[in-house]
Structure formats: structure tokens, C-alpha cells
Design a protein around this nucleic acid. Structure first.
Lengths: 334, 334
DNA sequence: GTCGCCTGGGTTAACGATTACCCATCTTGA
DNA sequence: TCAAGATGGGTAATCGTTAACCCAGGCGAC
């Protein structure tokens, strides 16, 4: 079907190894004339390297495998994959992503991906969470992205939720806000860590950390699109209370969107009456809200880049949990 | 490193071909005892098929290649890839997506992906558009997703923009709206086709198709996040005009989001004063707007599924353009 | 009884690229 | 003048899997 090195060698009147050297081995010894002729013939014949054949000798395909629990279908995937892809491309590797099927069987998915003999395999989660992997899987997975291995056997890259909450809370305080409410995402690791950071920042500022209201955005334990939103009710109650907030911190940009609507219905203006800040930096939403939303951007791309570095490094990296910082994106809602 | 068929055969005291037959050739002739023993040993040794080696004989890897102009980084990708992935998985294939680099060099990207010897290759676009491919590329690409080959050499799957515009306009008319404005996406094929459909539906209803206002959502020719939005100004002007609209059709859900804000500022209620409908069904936005947005969902998943069928079919399919229908998602904004 | 077919295997040659090793010829310095 | 490198290239084995053949025994039909 496609031309092989053999075809090229035949046509050029050289051996296969010379053809291989001309096309791939940059430093192979041969005259420029020979190399040029081989390159030309390769072009004519439309030669394309056969990675499968090469991989037989090398033992692996130039692939980085990514197992994602639901990642591909998430908008967060974009940034993680971009980060991975950029770094992998620099090393002449491709990223091969496989979504965990409905059966959530890591072992099976791992087997599927290993059939392609990737150089290394990462596990990526859509939401920041802890993951328990079967022991056999732990050996094959080199790094966890946006999640943390429960057994502590695998290097993990996670967003620094607590630090981000501290930073954004401090930012609100520096802007003169004193009564901050937090409409948080319940049932998520991220939410729990952010709540800690939120309260810590208040305490650090000499305020009563326990008194600050932290309310769940939805009724269900697991956050999903189906969950019944409590945002509207919470905002109304907060505004009616004896100590109405002058700032609302939101679990994500979608929550912020609902907060905007609720504040508007109550006749409050943003940010004059109530400042709003959030986590996510979902650009579609954050830039189009009126006023544009100040929000903490998740370090997805950084996680992807760092993961690629770990995956491509020759030495197995030390097993530790890297907490990557968010970035404050200032717009006009504070 | 990893166990091979040879290792298994050695341990089981059979030949490699028998081991191969037991593990892969479902109908290979051998006693159940032998097969069972081989399967057991394979399990112990953690055998994983080496697709690279297999592909050397078969000529291709069990992969469907997807070249996307920017697809992976788009929220639309999710549905197209899901559709593809589901169908491919049923055929024991994996989807291998490669994003066109910054250089937009289809030939080069095609070369990259062909190194992996995929069974078939698709080209997918983020926005519905026409694409001109280099002649050499046209031979290697089996189907175009969300775009149309300019040379007419490749089967294409595209959303039926015109039909969708007709349907949603008719829906507005059936709901008693008579003065419909369309804030369209300028400079896009989708926008042009939708405008045609919009006007056609009005004419079909006995109205003056030319008189209906169709306004660009942004100033730039190419729609991007950077483009300066004209939505707010357009809405204000429309409301101030001598014949204010009782419905606004939006180019996408983000435009609808801005229309909501503008209507709200002008003190109009949705849908009582002005109905709003849109294209996209970007769930994050559409379900969280207040009231939830009625919008035409793009047939991304259907395109993915259909593409997989074409890619996996033995016969090269007839070269034609398939226009797939949108789906009207009724919420409460009309 | 024996021919032919079924059963349960084995042998061996690919597939395409890489690579360790070998062999000429040509320079060059002492 | 000649030995030692440098230059330019060839040979053949190898990776893991498959598939085209081959083979020996058993068994039923004639």
C-alpha cells in the first residue's frame, strides 16, 4: 500500500539501512548526494514512517496515554490536553486519550490503552478528587492529573484550592469588603478545601471565620447539572438578613451567573452594592456577564504541561503531591 | 518488558501460533483444555496484545484518525468525539485525534497521523465552514465533519442550518410572535445559511422576509471572543424603534446571554414582552439563564456517529453532503 | 481396509524499521 | 611508505504477531 524504506532503497539503489539513515538518523554517515537522492525519492513515493514497525524495535510507540474519567467531554479537558499536547509535541510524541467507559473499570481501560504501547500513561480527572486505583493500575500510571492517588503511590498534580480561596478572599477584603458570603459547591473535595481557605483568610484578617456564611449551591451531594439550584433562595435570604453581604464568593462561574440574576432581581447593582467573585474562569460565561466576572482561573494548562514533563522524564519522579496555584483574573465585578 | 506470545507459548509448552489462536482467533481449532491453560498463563504474565506487531501484518492500527482544525479545544468537540468514540468502540477501534497545529498545515498534520497507520481518517471543523484541502490530502481523508470539502471530492456531514432557522422561526410564529429580529453571527457560513432560512420562514408565513431586521452580533468579520459585541446597542435600538420586536432570535447562546442582560436593563421581561430563542444549546448557559433558554441543539453527536459509520464501512461511500437536522430544545424563553 | 476429512497442533516466512557488526576505499601524519 | 582513522555503505538479526502451509492420528463411509 504505502511505500516502505525497502521500496525507496530499491529505487535509489542503496540498502535499506542507508535509506533509514537518510530519513531518520540525522547523523548517519553518508554523502550529501546520496541523502538528497533518497529524500527526493521518498517524497515522490509519498513515504510515511511506519511507527508500528519502528516501535517493534524500540518497545514503545511515541504516545502518551491519558486515561480520563470523563475528561474529554469536559470543557476543562481542553486546557489540560493543550498543556499536555504542547509539551508532548516538543518531544515528538502524540497524546492518546481514552475515556473511562461507563463501567469505570480502570484495569480494563488501562489494558486497552497499553495495547498501543504508549511511552507513559497518565490518569486525569474532570473534577479535583481523590481516586482509589487497583494496585495493578498503580504500577502502570506515572502521574495523576487533577486528582490524588489515595494510596499515595503516584505523583499527583492538583489545583491549590485552599490557596486560591485565601487569595480571592484576601482580594475581596483588600477591596474593602467585610461581609463576605460563600456559595460553595457541596460534596466536592474542591469545595471543602476552598471553605477551609476562605475561613482561614478571614481569621488571618482578624475576623470571625466561623461566623461567615458558607452555603451550598445545590441540594444534591454530588454536583451535577440536574441538581436543584439553591442559589436564588440563598441570595434572597442573605439580602434579607440582618447583616446582608457586601460580597459573594461563588463556587464556580455558573453559580455566579445565577447570583447575578438573583442580585439583579433584588435590585442590587454589581459591584457597587455587592461584589461577586468566583472560581473557574469559564471564559464564555465570565467575559459575557455584565459586568464581566472576576474569577480565579484553574491551573489546568499548567497541570498538563507539568504532567508531560513528568511523563517524558527518564527518571521516575519522586512521589509527591504538587499543588498548583490558581490565577486571579481581575474583571469588573469586585 | 511485557510478556509476549512467545513467553506464553514457552510456559504453556505450545507453539506461538497456538497461543495466538487461543487469545485472539476465536474460532481457532484447539482443545478447550489447551485454550484454558493458555488463557490462565496469559493472565498470570499480564499479557497485553501488542497492536504494533499485529498491525505489521494487517497493515493498519485499529485507529480512526481525526484531524481537527481546533476541535479538541472546543466544547463542540465533546459531542462529535463522543459520537465517533461510541461507534468506533463498538468496532473495537480507538479514536485518535490530532489538532491542526498553529501552522494550519493539513498536509503535515496528515503525515503525522498517518505514521500511526490509522484505518481511516476524518477531518473535523470547529465551526461549520467550507474547507479547501490540498489534492494529496483529499485522497487520504474519508469524511468531513462539520465542514464541507470545497472540491466536492469527499463525503461531508454538516448541520442543516437553513432547516434549523426555518424551524425555530416557525416555532416563534406559532407562538404568536410577529416582529422577530435576528441577531446573527456575521462572517460565518452558518450565519448566512440561517439568515436564508429565517427569511424563507417569514415569507412562507406570508410576511415580508426582507423587512425583518438581521443584525450582526459583533463588529469583526470573523467571530471571536475578542470581537467587540454590538448586541447591547442593537437591542437598545430595536426597542426604541417604531416597531419594537416581540421576539429576538440569537446566533448562539452567548449572544442570547447578552440579549437577556440588555432586555433586563431596558425593563423588559422574557418571554412576556420579548421572546428569545437561539442556536447551540450550550447547556451550561442555556439551562442557567433566567428563564432557561429555548434553543436549537446542533447535531454534533449525530455527525460523530454517522462519521464513524462511514469511516468503518468497507465500501467507500458515495460522495455527497449530508445535512443533519438540529433539535429544538424547548425551555421557557418563548 | 482404505480413502478422505476432521482435529489439534507445529513450522516458517513474512511485515518495516533499526542496529550491531563488517568491509571496502580514501586521507593523513610520522 | 604504511598504519590508523575517517568515510560511505552493506548484511543480517531482531522485535511480536499473524497466516499460509504442513503433518500425524483418529474415525466414519464405502
Amino acid at each position: 500500500m504505502t511505500a516502505s524504506l525497502n521500496d525507496i532503497a530499491l529505487r535509489a539503489g542503496v540498502s535499506v539501512k542507508t535509506a533509514s539513515g537518510a530519513l531518520h538518523g540525522g547523523s548517519a554517515r553518508m554523502s550529501d548526494a546520496t541523502r538528497q537522492r533518497i529524500l527526493e525519492i521518498a517524497g515522490e513515493l509519498g513515504y510515511v514512517t511506519n511507527f508500528a514497525a519502528r516501535s517493534m524495535r524500540q518497545g514503545w510507540m511515541p504516545l502518551i496515554g491519558v486515561i480520563s474519567d470523563e475528561l474529554i467531554t469536559s470543557r476543562f479537558a481542553t486546557e489540560i490536553i493543550r498543556g499536555l499536547d504542547g509539551a508532548a509535541r516538543a518531544a515528538e510524541m502524540a497524546v492518546f486519550a481514552v475515556t473511562l467507559g461507563n463501567r469505570r473499570d480502570v484495569g480494563k481501560t488501562l489494558g486497552e490503552i497499553r495495547q498501543f504501547r504508549p511511552r507513559a500513561i497518565a490518569y486525569a480527572a474532570m473534577y479535583h478528587k481523590r481516586v482509589t486505583l487497583p494496585p495493578s493500575a498503580a504500577e502502570a500510571i506515572a502521574v495523576m492529573i487533577n486528582c490524588q492517588d489515595d494510596a499515595g503511590l503516584i505523583p499527583s498534580l492538583v489545583p491549590d484550592e485552599e490557596g486560591a480561596a485565601i487569595e480571592v478572599t484576601r482580594y475581596l477584603l483588600e477591596n474593602g469588603r467585610r461581609a463576605i458570603a460563600f456559595i460553595n459547591l457541596p460534596g466536592l473535595l474542591a469545595g471543602a478545601l476552598r471553605e477551609e481557605g476562605f475561613r482561614r483568610a478571614l481569621v488571618d484578617a482578624g475576623m470571625d471565620g466561623e461566623a461567615a456564611p458558607v452555603l451550598p449551591a445545590v441540594r444534591q451531594t454530588i454536583y451535577s447539572d440536574r441538581a436543584q439550584s439553591l442559589v436564588s433562595a440563598h441570595v434572597a435570604a442573605l439580602l434579607d438578613s440582618s447583616s446582608p453581604p457586601d460580597a459573594i464568593l461563588c463556587g464556580n462561574d455558573r453559580v455566579a451567573m445565577e447570583v447575578y440574576a438573583a442580585l439583579r432581581r433584588a435590585g442590587r447593582s454589581i459591584p457597587e452594592d455587592v461584589a461577586v467573585a468566583s472560581f473557574d474562569n469559564q471564559v464564555d460565561i465570565a467575559t459575557r456577564l455584565d459586568p464581566p466576572l472576576t474569577t480565579m482561573a484553574l491551573p489546568h494548562r499548567a497541570m498538563g504541561r507539568m504532567a508531560a514533563n513528568i511523563l517524558l522524564s527518564a527518571e521516575p519522579p519522586p512521589v509527591e503531591v504538587h499543588r498548583l496555584p490558581f490565577q486571579l483574573v481581575e474583571r469588573s465585578s469586585v
